[in-house]
Design a protein around this nucleic acid. Structure first.
Length: 423
RNA sequence: GACCCCAUCGUCUAGCCUGGUUAGGACACAAGCUUUUCAAGCUUGCAGCACGGGUUCAAAUCCCGUUGGGGUCGCCA
């Protein structure tokens, strides 16, 4: 068997398109078949090279590899020949330069793999333009000719194509080609029940990537829309999903996209990543932010990553939460400064700094016992000191364990930040 | 408007095909545990078969209708 994903490079790869590509890909892999990536760039006006590059890039990033690749813009001769054949056989006629297919009146039956039998009456379908006046093929014509010539056995696409199907079936018939099997996937909608649009949130795969989502997370979330890997299974690898994939088990109803759940699925994948791989994915971001340079201390970075690994929903969260480790000049949130540093703790901070100074080993344990000693000596409650110290060291009132954080920062920087706070 | 598709917690879903379940799980939400904070994690809770008719001893499951939602009606793809 052979399937294809056929995006048009008139925009970035849409999250809905990515889901269609994913289902095609999973089906191909589960059936040991072929997956074709066909770029439908017949609209020369609107098709852009940058979109083509971005689509290819996003597909690779998501891990959806293909076995064959085609550009429709390189196949115009083929479409023209087939249109001429229909003209010669009297099945199509010309209107100016355009070639138009006659649609005979009759009943058309479509057996959809997901929805079952759907019946259309071709009375309601008007004659179809095959070749436009400018010599380029229409979507349906190029699509049918290609699907037939490329020997596509299963056309898996969005539900918005259901009403195109009878028109295309007429084209297959006129051309004398056997139609493939069809499966129409339910659409993905936004929280308001409408189409996903830039207005209501991110739509392009690139945008999600820039937001710090990992490919595995997006792929895992997308497969959950309209399908289930199995009872009580949510977080699964692509390999596992492929094993369980069945086109017949795909849902019929449209699914609402939930950013909350995507965030959760993504956090689960980040938790499951090895420290090594997570660090690798973080490095480009850190460089971009100038948090690290070309060369850096990898073991030290991995320690930072390890401390935050369990608390990240996205890669970008790391940038937001761990910035204090990389920045020389601490950025303190105004509200936290107000709340925890308005009272002068100069004396306590000094005492703490002096105690830390005496430590030969600055571990979470040694830092904590020194801290406890100071609290006891000054007769204050530990939370009176914990919160101001955290803000002084990290610029934030929330974060990982304070003593782990101190140890990570190192003795020098910890003492320096304590001393600078009320100076 | 015409044609087509769809309908289980707020959301994603399992169950539906092959009627008999305390209708299961997840996100979100709430509470508790843990705790130096916030997360995470663990435990518990809240919450659903759109409605109306059939068929049947029995309907979330099969049939019809209603309502509601969505899609398509381009020489765009």
């Amino acid at each position: 068997m052979k399937v294809r994903f056929a995006p048009s490079p008139t925009g970035y790869l849409h999250i809905g398109g990515a889901r269609t590509a994913l289902f095609n890909w999973m089906y191909a892999r589960s059936q040991k078949g072929m997956f074709v990536l066909r770029i439908e760039d017949t609209d020369l006006e609107r098709s852009k090279k940058e979109y083509l590059d971005e689509i290819v890039d996003s597909m690779k990033w998501l891990g959806l590899s293909w076995d064959e690749f085609y550009l429709q813009s390189e196949r115009f001769d083929i479409y023209r020949q087939h249109a001429q054949k229909l003209l010669d056989e009297g099945k199509a006629y010309k209107d100016g330069e355009a070639v138009i297919l006659k649609i005979p009146a009759r009943e058309i039956k479509l057996y959809d793999l997901i929805r079952g039998e759907i019946v259309f009456d071709s009375e309601t379908i008007k004659d179809q333009v095959l070749m436009k006046s400018d010599g380029s093929p229409t979507y349906s014509f190029a699509c049918v000719v290609d699907d037939a010539l490329m020997e596509i056995t299963h056309v898996i696409r969005g539900e918005d194509h259901i009403s195109n199907t009878p028109k295309q079936m007429m084209i297959y018939e006129a051309l004398g080609f056997k139609a493939p099997k069809f499966a129409h996937l339910p659409l993905i909608m936004d929280a308001e029940g409408g189409r996903m649009s830039k207005r209501t949130g991110a739509v392009a795969v690139t945008e999600y990537r820039n937001l710090g989502f990992v490919a595995d997370g997006i792929v895992n979330y997308l497969m959950l829309l309209g399908w289930s890997p199995g009872p009580n299974q949510e977080i699964v690898s692509l390999e596992k999903a492929v094993q369980n994939f069945s086109i017949k088990k795909v849902n019929k109803a449209a699914a609402v996209f939930s950013m909350d759940k995507l965030l959760w699925v993504n956090s689960q994948h980040i938790k499951n990543m090895s420290l090594d791989r997570l660090t690798d994915s973080l490095i480009p971001l850190l460089r971009q932010k100038n948090f690290i340079g070309e060369s850096f201390d990898r073991p030290a970075l991995e320690k930072v990553v390890a401390l935050f690994k369990g608390r990240l929903s996205t890669l970008n969260d790391f940038i937001d939460w761990a910035d204090f480790v990389f920045l020389e000049q601490l950025v303190i949130r105004q509200e936290d400064k107000q709340k925890y540093l308005s009272q002068n703790r100069k004396k306590e901070f000094e005492t703490l700094a002096q105690e830390f100074e005496k430590l030969t080993e600055f571990t979470p344990q040694s830092a904590e016992s020194a801290f406890r000693d100071v609290v006891a000596r000054l007769s204050i409650s530990s939370s009176d000191l914990v919160h101001p110290v955290r803000v002084a060291l990290t610029g934030k009132s929330v974060g990982p364990g304070l003593f782990e954080t101190m140890s990570l920062l190192g003795k020098e920087r910890t003492i320096k930040r304590l001393q600078e706070t009320f100076s």
